[in-house]
Design a protein around this nucleic acid. Structure first.
Lengths: 126, 126
DNA sequence: GACACTAGTTAACAAAAGGTAACTACTAAC
DNA sequence: GTTAGTAGTTACCTTTTGTTAACTAGTGTC
């Protein structure tokens, strides 16, 4: 069975499910990692551009997140040394494409959840 | 358009995607929330049972996570006062079912990621 | 000359999250 | 009477995460 698409979460036991989400959160958990990946996927590939796009992130945190993402194989760092000052561009690796479903699900749920909160706020104002 | 299934993340702009994952992470981010939800979905509904199932969680943290999850409408706390000592059972609300896709995607990716790490470790040992 | 841009790093600090161990109070078994 | 189970709470401490502001070093603009 070579096809990874055949992994069926519903066939796993409780401990295996917990371990699997634990592994996910270990790699891509935290406040910023997925946001950096989304910004990169939307064509924002340079440091200052990323920092402007991902509102609230500080330079220090962005720097350390990019390093970790590079180390874990999600991001590739390309230096254009011919330019001066040197230009650095970040790009997503093919492996980061495997996160597509995770990102999709989280965006979709985030939109739904915001709508729920909004409608609750409306009700409590009446 | 009443059907929430029609939300299409690919139609959102970058800022909206970032806001949506931000909303998701705000509600269900962190090390434990999704694990508690998974354990509850697998039939572990009592405090000590949850603590045994979710390895590594402390009583203090489990207690505060359950309170937050209850406050945000993911969990219902049922007290059986007729028993002595009192028995408390937690159950997931219908709203927590909307997280199904998120949990599914994270479990699936976690399994895939573990396999990747394992195969990399093998290569580096040869 | 002063400021803004490139891509960050560094130091000092603050806040949030999490861990440990002791404790409540009551029941049941050995 | 000691131990284990029920469901937590409390105080103290450590770790992780994040913030701010200053700084590097070079180029281009007003």
């Amino acid at each position: 069975m070579k096809n990874h698409e055949q992994i069926k979460p519903e066939d796993l036991g409780c401990a295996e499910k917990l371990q699997a989400v634990g592994d996910s959160l270990y790699a891509i958990g935290g406040k910023w990692k997925l946001r950096v990946i989304i910004a990169l996927s939307q064509g924002h590939c340079r440091f200052n551009d990323l920092q402007r796009t991902i509102t609230g992130i500080s330079g220090k945190v962005l720097s350390s997140e990019l390093k970790e993402l590079e180390l874990n194989g999600f991001v590739k760092r390309n230096v254009q040394a011919e330019n001066n000052p040197v230009i650095v561009e970040y790009e997503l690796t093919p492996y980061s494409q495997t996160l597509k479903d995770v990102v999709y699900a989280l965006i979709k749920w985030g939109v739904l959840h915001r709508e729920k909160i909004k409608s609750e706020a409306k009700v409590s104002n009446v």
